[in-house]
Write a protein that binds this DNA or RNA. Sequence first.
DNA 1: GTCTATATATTGATAGAC
DNA 2: GTCTATCAATATATAGAC
Lengths: 196, 196
Amino acid sequence: MSESDTREKLLTVAARLFHEQGYAATGISTILREAKVNSGSLYYFFPTKEALLLGVLDQYLDRLEPEVLRPAFEKTNDPIERIFAVLGGYRQMLQMTGCAMGCPIGNLALELSDSYPGVREKLAGLFRAWCDGIQRCLDEAADRLPDHVDRGMLAQFVLTVMEGAMMQARAHRSLDPYDASMAHLKSYFDRLLAGA
Amino acid sequence: MSESDTREKLLTVAARLFHEQGYAATGISTILREAKVNSGSLYYFFPTKEALLLGVLDQYLDRLEPEVLRPAFEKTNDPIERIFAVLGGYRQMLQMTGCAMGCPIGNLALELSDSYPGVREKLAGLFRAWCDGIQRCLDEAADRLPDHVDRGMLAQFVLTVMEGAMMQARAHRSLDPYDASMAHLKSYFDRLLAGA
DNA sequence: GTCTATATATTGATAGAC
DNA sequence: GTCTATCAATATATAGAC
């Protein structure tokens, strides 16, 4: 196994465990066991557990465009439908995990925004990048939206609804709250687009 | 100090620390030190750390009506304004903590929905109770809302937006995302109320 | 870069006197 | 109900040979 394979494997396993169990609840020893890597190797690449987390967050940023946004955008050419295609992707993730796991970024944001400043900044950067993707869609649909709408703020609202909806779906172990919130978001968009 | 004073103090300190640091990141020893209580006393009242958490959640449910809903409802008689008064209360909490702490229930929901079944159910119960409070307002305003609106789902949407907005405020350490999302929620309500 | 062995602190929880 | 002392397990991290 090449050097960077080990690094990648550690990032993959750590990302999965942080997502499944949370950061604090995931022990280094569990990561080592599941990645089949020894302690010395992990600490060769990542001096601390926090550094490993930062690596995981960097990886999420790298994968946002190719694995989250682009696949959804490819489903349709209508910019507003593209936004709801992204939201549909998260619904699929909920469905596949029985509404157990939620958004990996959102989970970490509420678990440890405060604890580590560097982590908080990276999480904020991830949210900003996600919103940028949504805003690109909104900008494309600018002529269909009322003039007074701040498209950056509207993108932020879309993220807000998505994260809140995933939280509710997870807490209730049901897609219903997610679908209900998506329906209202859709209704809001319909009204915005109609009353331009 | 009377027996139940000790229990109350443990619940108060544990609630604060779980809110500030998260559940997994909060050690029993820290709770004992800050509550000035000895190990034996804690385990007399709560057989495990999880039981202590369940106690904290029970306390949150007890205090929802008197400390969250009623104070907000007393600020105005208009049922829709009452909803936004509740949301304003959370804004105040964000402001007082420099956007550091977020919603105690939401934080716990994303940290440990999956880990402990009993905990997840109590969290879901808390969310349901909160939504019930909002729905009472919506029911009062039923004649001003379009007939097709499911008021339970709309209450759920209000919670979704509130939780998502608190997450964003915390991640960005700024009230702006919270205010932006509240403005959009208000705009949605205005459109619903106008187009009844 | 990887290996094994280990250090040190802290974790949640218990025992038994009072 | 509260106290002190302590347990066994686990935590993150390190040392040093290979």
